[in-house]
Design a binder for these strands. Structure first.
Lengths: 177, 177
DNA sequence: CATAAGTGGGTGACGTGTCAACTAAAACTT
DNA sequence: AAGTTTTAGTTGACACGTCACCCACTTATG
């Protein structure tokens, strides 16, 4: 009936959509649009699942952990503030906080108070942390290249990127992101 | 150092990558590729987050729940087998099982044993379940249209879909998906 | 100086997805 | 008919992201 997003008239159950919601009938998705939307959903879950699985199997690490290790490894020697980390990764503070706690428990990184600001802290990789990124990076980058770049021409890659950026920018502008 | 996926030579710490991993240095991502990859990651988390939020606020429902309700509403009157549901949605059986249990508790649907196959079951929407999809659908489809279709031309939509399909097909073929 | 407002960061509950192991009922096999 | 293998579906442990608060420290305002 509501095949993921399209309205399909079914004579056996005649109901009236939208008596209260809005005066105008929404613009339902066409068959074409629906295929695109499903492809998008499939992609949104499938790609992260695939890359996460690779990381997990080959490096015993989640995608989030990799992102954090990589971001911290990028930072100036002194360490990073966890708020900056949140900004760099575009994550919520609490998400960062939770993940840092788990990673600290695994001794991948250290959180130590910073003198200048009583509430701040600085994150540094432990030697183990360095080892882990270092050994994980080659396998991960290879996977990423194989899965997203190899199947596309340079032109398609650019087109794809631009389309995604357009969607994101428009959404941000409208406060939907 | 490992800025999410590119190698950045840092003279202060000279280590040798890949002593054990593989003989050949992996093909690191170029600056361009890296931007694309980050855009992809951002998209993969951002779009579901945005649509889920809309659904949650306006319909008190998760994206997964919407998908199940929609899929079941599409099915022939007799109900769906949960295995078919898993196939339709492309989900794991356990994922479906967990979600069905929660949704049954909310009385959005019913699971009843089917006579023909002793281990099977058929899922049917409750009247409440119907109500919920029916009222949620217009708002959700509007959101989807605004966030992914409105910002793109018809041509871009098609290009996008094709690129995503290419990536997915190649990944499936290689067993990466 | 005191008090209010803002900021850096943490906490706990909750819903979710994954994996691996499991039960029970078909469906083959000989 | 007895044993083996599939198949349908469940369960539990675990990691994760979100949300809504909360706490401690800093900064601005009076």
């Amino acid at each position: 009936m509501f095949q993921l997003l399209r309205e399909k008239i079914d004579v056996s159950t005649n109901f009236s959509v939208n008596v209260s919601n809005a005066m105008t009938e929404p613009r339902w998705l066409s068959a074409e649009e629906q295929i695109t939307w499903l492809e998008l959903r499939e992609f949104n879950s499938g790609l992260p699942r695939a890359t996460d699985r690779q990381l997990h199997q080959e490096a015993g690490m989640s995608g989030g952990e990799y992102a954090v290790l990589a971001a911290v490894s990028e930072a100036p020697a002194g360490g990073v503030r966890s708020g900056d980390l949140a900004r760099i990764l575009g994550w919520e503070k609490s998400r960062v906080s939770h993940l840092l706690r788990r990673m600290e428990a695994k001794e991948l990184l250290e959180r130590c108070a910073v003198s200048a600001d009583g509430r701040g802290q600085e994150i540094t990789l432990t030697p183990q942390g360095w080892d882990v990124v270092r050994t994980a990076a080659p396998g991960h980058v290879t996977m990423v290249r194989e899965i997203v770049f190899d199947p596309l021409t340079a032109d398609e890659q650019l087109q794809l990127r631009n389309s995604l950026r357009k969607i994101r920018d428009a959404a941000i502008e409208r406060g939907l992101w």
